[in-house]
Design a protein around this nucleic acid. Structure first.
Length: 699
DNA sequence: GATCGGATAC
C-alpha cells in the first residue's frame, strides 16, 4: 500500500487559506481590471478576482518546490491556482496544454485522482448457470428468517466456486438475501473471500438504502484484511448520498485517501456530487481544478454534476464555464448533460440561452427525451413564450419525440403525476388563449386528484378572463381556494387585470370582485376608493402607498397599470393621471422618459394600454407647455410602444396609434424602427401653434 | 435491476 496521503479536508482547508491570501495580495490589480472574465462562475469570481497572477511568484509556491516530500495539498495548491487562471479562458493560448502549469516539470507531482479507471475482470462462464439461477430464485422466494434461509441454502446444487458465488450474489434480489448469503459464504469458509463479493452485496444493500449494514461490511473488510477498492468506496459513498448522509460520504472519501488509495474518476465525480449537494461550490471547483491540473480529462458525468450545481445556485456564469470547459477539453455533451444544463439555464432565468442550447443539442444529433422536453416546455412556459412552446409541441409531433411526458408519469407506479408539468401546460394553453384545452386539463387534474398550484390557478384565471368566461373563472377560483391554494400577489394581479377587461357588465365585474375580495380585501377597498370621484388625491396617495408597500415588488407595476386601466374604463381620466403620477413617484416606471440632447423619448413598453395612453396625454400636455413657454427642445421626439410580441403589450402599438390620431398629434410610425412613433421639433411646434390658433379662432 | 461503482425534471 502507498503511504497515507493528506486528507481531503486538509487540502481544502489549506487551499481556502491560500486562496484568501492570494486574493488579498492582489486586490488592487483586481479592482482595476475593468474587463472581468464573463465565463467565471460566481464563486470563482468572488474568491479569485484575478486570473492572470502567476503562482510561481508567490512565496508558498516557491517553498513547495524546495521541499523534498511535499504533501499532496502542498503539491496541488499552486497548481490549482495556476489552472484557475488558464483553464477558464483568460489566456486561451495556455488552455490546451495544462501540463505547462507544472511548477517543476522534472519532478512529476502526485495526482489527486487516478486517470485509469479500475480494471474489471472479464465475466467468466459458469457451466452450471441454469442450476444456480434456479437456486437463487428459490432463495429469493423463501422467507426472510434465518431458519428458512439455512434450510434453503443447503440445497446448493454444486460446489461453490468464485463464479457461482458471483452469479448467486448478483441474482439475489431483496437485500436481506444477498446479505445473508454473503454472511453464509464467510462463515462456511468454502472459498477465499474477495473484494468483489462485498461489492456486489453492497450494491444490493444500497438498493435497500441500508447504509449502516454497508458500513458494517466495510469494517468487516478492514478486520479481515480484504482490500477495499474504488468500486467499494464509490458504492459506499453513493449509498451515503442516497441516504442523505453526506457527512458519511465525505468521511469515507477522506478515509480512502488516508489508506493511500487514489480515487479514480468514478469515485471522484461521486464525491464532487456530494460536495455539490452540500452546497460547497468552492470546494467542488477546487477539486475539479485540481484534477484538471494533473491532466485529468473529465467525462460527461462530471460535467453533469457541475452543471447541476451551478443550476441550483442560479449561476449563469458557472453554466457557461461548464460549457466552455467541455468545448476546450473536447467532450461532447450527451443527453443527460444537455438535460442538466437546460434545467440549469431555466433555474438561472436564461430562456434565450436555453433555447439556443436546445437547438444545438438537436443539431448535434442528440435525441431529446421526456426530461428534456419537460424542462424546455417549462422554461418557455415560465418565460411566457407561448409561440416557442407551441412550435416545440408541433416539432414533437413531427419528429415523434415523446409527446406523452405527462402520460408517462400517469402510468408509472413510482412517479406521481406531475403537478408541475400540468402547470407548464396550463401556462402554455393559457398564454395562447386556448380556454378549452386549459379547462380540459383543469378537469383532468380534478379527476386525477392532482394538486392545482397557485401558478396554474393564475394561468387559468388569466386565460378565462381574456375569454370573458366569468362563471368558469369564479368556479376555478373557488375550487382552488377549497383545495388549499393560497392566493398570492400574482394571482391578485391577474384578477385585477381581468377586472380591467370586464368593462360594461356590472354583473361580471362583481363576479371578479368577489374573488378578489377573498384574496385581497384591501385591494378591493382601494378600488372602491379610487373609483369614487369624491375621494381626494391625498387620500388616494396614502392608500396607494400602503397597497404598494404590501405588494411584492414584481407585481407593483402591473397593479398600477391595471388600476389605471380600470379608471379609464370608467372615464375617470383625472384619477388615471393621478395614479400614473403616483406610480412614477414610487419608482414603478423607471425609464419612462429618456432625454438626450438631440432626442426625447417616451418609452411605454412596460405600460398597459390605459397607462400608455395616460402617459401620452401627459407628455403632449407637458410638451405643449414647453412650446408655449418657448423653452429649449431637442430636434427629435420618439414614442416607443414595442411591436407587441410580449403578451401584455399586444395591441399596444395599435391603440397608441389610434390615440395619436385622436389627439391629432404629429407623430408618425418610424420607417426604420418598428414599434416607434417619431416627430420633429418643427412638427411639434406647428402642431401646438395651430391647435391654439384654431382654438383662438373658435372662441 | 442480468453481468462490481458515479450524473438529469417537480
Amino acid at each position: 500500500m502507498a503511504a497515507p496521503l493528506s486528507s481531503i479536508t486538509d487540502i481544502l482547508f489549506t487551499d481556502t487559506k491560500r486562496t484568501r491570501f492570494t486574493t488579498n495580495t492582489n486586490t488592487n490589480t483586481a479592482t482595476t481590471n475593468s474587463n472581468p472574465n464573463p465565463l467565471k462562475p460566481k464563486t470563482l469570481r468572488k474568491k479569485f478576482p484575478i486570473y492572470c497572477t502567476t503562482s510561481k511568484s508567490t512565496p508558498e509556491a516557491a517553498s513547495t518546490t524546495t521541499k523534498k516530500n511535499p504533501s499532496l495539498s502542498e503539491q496541488l495548491t499552486p497548481l490549482a491556482n495556476k489552472t484557475l487562471s488558464t483553464s477558464i479562458g483568460i489566456q486561451p493560448n495556455v488552455l490546451s496544454k495544462p501540463k505547462s502549469t507544472w511548477v517543476n516539470p522534472t519532478k512529476p507531482k502526485r495526482s489527486v485522482l487516478s486517470h485509469q479507471r479500475q480494471k474489471r475482470a472479464p465475466y467468466s462462464y459458469t457451466p452450471q448457470l441454469r442450476d444456480f439461477q434456479l437456486f437463487a430464485q428459490k432463495i429469493n422466494e423463501c422467507g426472510n428468517s434465518d431458519d428458512e434461509f439455512s434450510d434453503m441454502v443447503k440445497e446448493i446444487p454444486h460446489t461453490l466456486t468464485r463464479e457461482n458465488a458471483l452469479l448467486v450474489l448478483n441474482s439475489l434480489k431483496p437485500w436481506p438475501k444477498t446479505h445473508m448469503f454473503l454472511h453464509w459464504m464467510r462463515t462456511q469458509n468454502l472459498i477465499p473471500m474477495e473484494t468483489i463479493f462485498y461489492n456486489v452485496t453492497m450494491k444490493s444493500l444500497r438498493f435497500g438504502r441500508q447504509f449502516q449494514l454497508i458500513e458494517e461490511l466495510a469494517h468487516q473488510m478492514f478486520d479481515d484484511g480484504i482490500e477495499l477498492d474504488n468500486i467499494t468506496y464509490s458504492t459506499i459513498i453513493s449509498c451515503a448520498k442516497k441516504c442523505n448522509l453526506f457527512d458519511k460520504a465525505v468521511y469515507w472519501f477522506e478515509r480512502m485517501y488516508k489508506t493511500g488509495l487514489m480515487p479514480d474518476e468514478v469515485t471522484y465525480s461521486a464525491i464532487l456530487d456530494v460536495y455539490a449537494k452540500l452546497g460547497k461550490v468552492q470546494e467542488v471547483i477546487n477539486l475539479y481544478e485540481r484534477g484538471r491540473a494533473t491532466g485529468w480529462k473529465p467525462d460527461p458525468i462530471t460535467f453533469s454534476v457541475l452543471g447541476k450545481m451551478f443550476g441550483e445556485a442560479g449561476d449563469y456564469d458557472g453554466i457557461r464555464y461548464v460549457l466552455q470547459e467541455m468545448k476546450s477539453i473536447g467532450v461532447q455533451p450527451n443527453l443527460v448533460v444537455y438535460n442538466t444544463l437546460l434545467e440549469a439555464m431555466g433555474k438561472a432565468g436564461k430562456p434565450g440561452f436555453a433555447r439556443s442550447l436546445f437547438e444545438e443539442m438537436i443539431e448535434s444529433g442528440v435525441e431529446p427525451n421526456e426530461k428534456t422536453l419537460t424542462a424546455v416546455i417549462k422554461i418557455y412556459g415560465k418565460a411566457r413564450w407561448s409561440r416557442d412552446a407551441l412550435e416545440l409541441w408541433e416539432r414533437m409531433k413531427e419528429n415523434g419525440w415523446p409527446m406523452d411526458f405527462i402520460l408517462d408519469m400517469k402510468q408509472s407506479e413510482h412517479t406521481k403525476p406531475d403537478s408541475y408539468s400540468y402547470t407548464a401546460m396550463l401556462n402554455i394553453y393559457g398564454s395562447e388563449g386556448d380556454v378549452d384545452s386549459a379547462m380540459e386539463l383543469f378537469e383532468e387534474m380534478s379527476r386525477l386528484g392532482i394538486q392545482l398550484n397557485v401558478m396554474g390557478c393564475t394561468c387559468l384565471i388569466q386565460c378565462l378572463g381574456k375569454a370573458m368566461e366569468f362563471d368558469d373563472l369564479v368556479r376555478v377560483f373557488d375550487v382552488a381556494i377549497e383545495r388549499g391554494v393560497k392566493p398570492d400577489d400574482r394571482l391578485c394581479g391577474s384578477l385585477l387585470s381581468v377586472l380591467s377587461l370586464s368593462q360594461g357588465s356590472k354583473d361580471d365585474e362583481e363576479k371578479v370582485l368577489s374573488c378578489l375580495r377573498k384574496a385581497n380585501p384591501k385591494l378591493v377597498a382601494f378600488i372602491q376608493l379610487i373609483v369614487d370621484e369624491e375621494t381626494r388625491f391625498e387620500a388616494v396617495k396614502e392608500e396607494f402607498k400602503v397597497i404598494m408597500s404590501n405588494a411584492s415588488v414584481e407585481v407593483r407595476r402591473p397593479f398600477c397599470n391595471c388600476l389605471i386601466d380600470i379608471c379609464r374604463n370608467k372615464d375617470l381620466q383625472e384619477r388615471a393621471h393621478e395614479l400614473l403620477y403616483l406610480g412614477t413617484l414610487f419608482g414603478l416606471y423607471p425609464g419612462l422618459h429618456n432625454k438626450t440632447n438631440s432626442e426625447w423619448c417616451l418609452d411605454v413598453r412596460s405600460l398597459s394600454v390605459g397607462a400608455a395612453l395616460t402617459a401620452l396625454e401627459e407628455w403632449m400636455w407637458t410638451l405643449t407647455k414647453i412650446v408655449q413657454r418657448e423653452e429649449a427642445l431637442p430636434e427629435f421626439f420618439l414614442a416607443q410602444t414595442g411591436t407587441g410580441v410580449h403578451k401584455f403589450a399586444q395591441g399596444l402599438n395599435i391603440s397608441f396609434a389610434s390615440h395619436l390620431k385622436k389627439l391629432a398629434a404629429p407623430f408618425n410610425p418610424s420607417e426604420e424602427k418598428a414599434g416607434c412613433f417619431v416627430a420633429t421639433r418643427e412638427d411639434l411646434i406647428y402642431w401646438v401653434r395651430s391647435k391654439f390658433s384654431s382654438a383662438a379662432v373658435a372662441t
